[in-house]
Design a protein around this nucleic acid. Sequence first.
DNA 1: ATTTAATATCGCAATATTACGATAATATTT
DNA 2: AAATATTATCGTAATATTGCGATATTAAAT
Lengths: 110, 110
Amino acid sequence: MGLTKTEIFTDEQNRLASLFKVLGHPARVAILQYIINQKACICNDLVDELGLAQATISQHLKELKNIGIIQGTIEGKSVCYCIDEKLWKQIQAEFNVFFNQEVKITGCCS
Amino acid sequence: MGLTKTEIFTDEQNRLASLFKVLGHPARVAILQYIINQKACICNDLVDELGLAQATISQHLKELKNIGIIQGTIEGKSVCYCIDEKLWKQIQAEFNVFFNQEVKITGCCS
DNA sequence: ATTTAATATCGCAATATTACGATAATATTT
DNA sequence: AAATATTATCGTAATATTGCGATATTAAAT
């Protein structure tokens, strides 16, 4: 096993889980925060900033790019990464749809 | 390797990532949605509802309990699960603190 | 006390993730 | 064109996660 049974869940559940999953690693949270704090595109200071190997950072960046939350633009021989503001807000909105469900408990817990 | 280097990240980054991670599985998203839709505590219909073995569901419930987002109360020979509304809102708030950071890009991407 | 029912835990196999060194690919600089 | 710099990809080892059957554990019901 070790294989998530995605076929038994709804698309919405799988979608939401895959977004959460990408954000579920401290390196990826740190990368996002670093880009935001620079208030600019960043072209791999990440490797110096975080204590991870270049290959590892590159891999994490790829996962973030996959969900679209960051963009990479080639600038000469380096690549500039920045937050995709539209996606950023959209993902926040998707999470809020989930969290804003009415949680009304009328049973043993109340 | 295969071991996340938590020691190089801030507590905040690790905390946030661990919350995201728990929600990063469709079964756990589905469990939460099911409990919410019942609008009541639920005492393991989950095994029938989702297509996963009892042992597997129990494991997922444990992870959700670990972050406190659900509570389990023993009711006779079964256990009732419900959302912890306070934690639910607190976790949403933590996510929003993260997402409400000012994302201002003034570089190659604008 | 025995049986029954519900849930948790253990142990394991299969797959996934994390991390990194080595190397390839790409583009600038000399 | 060769050298240099930056990033991506490949291959691989170590660890984590997922899922499940088997087996506890717990509490009610008979």
